[in-house]
């Protein structure tokens, strides 16, 4: 009985440690960039997504798994949801999913101002993933079919970025 209580208590605290993150809002690309600079102690895996983008939503659990299983990278998701759906869709979605990676929201919808600053080859489709190590980056405009595929891509990218 006492043993069960211990497990229950542990689970209770575990659920706190894996608590969903607050939503950080970036007003423009410069704010996102300054966040990246401030959090550059380890490589960043930045994923651009939106709740309205079905393939994006499908691959989020792979990013959550990457976040939980790979302590060598910091996973940051950037939502491009519509302004009017932040309260009605984005926040309830994140609350329900309880993802513990960093969740952020990009408010600058003048996309032409900043898409090319992420990567000049990005045409603008999502999902898209950006791996950053110091001042070197790798960008892909594609979805990942599985966690394994994402994990492999991240591993290979880090080797390229470190070399």
């Amino acid at each position: 009985m006492r043993y069960f209580r211990f497990i229950a208590l542990s689970l209770f605290f575990l659920s706190f440690s894996a608590k969903a993150q607050d939503l950080i809002t970036f007003q423009n690309f410069e704010e996102l960039n300054s966040y990246i600079q401030k959090n550059s102690e380890k490589p960043l895996v930045v994923n651009f997504w939106a709740t309205w983008c079905a393939p994006c939503v499908k691959e989020l659990p792979y990013f959550q798994k990457l976040h939980l299983e790979n302590p060598n990278v910091k996973v940051v998701t950037v939502s491009l949801d519509f302004d009017k759906q932040v309260e009605s869709k984005l926040k309830p979605f994140l609350k329900k999913k309880n993802y513990s990676f960093v969740t952020t929201y990009m408010a600058d919808k003048k996309f032409n101002n900043w898409i090319s600053k992420v990567d000049e080859n990005w045409s603008g489709s999502i999902p898209a993933t950006w791996i950053i190590n110091g001042n070197k980056t790798i960008f892909v405009e594609q979805e990942f079919a599985s966690f394994e595929e994402l994990n492999q891509f991240v591993k290979e990218s880090l080797i390229k970025l470190i070399l």
């Binding site: 939106a50 393939p55 491009l80 996309f111 032409n112 898409i115 090319s116 045409s123 489709s125 405009e141």
Partner: peptide, 11 residues
Amino acid sequence: PNTTKAIGCSI
């Protein structure tokens, strides 16, 4: 401009 970029759904 003769080229602009915007977000969209992948094909």
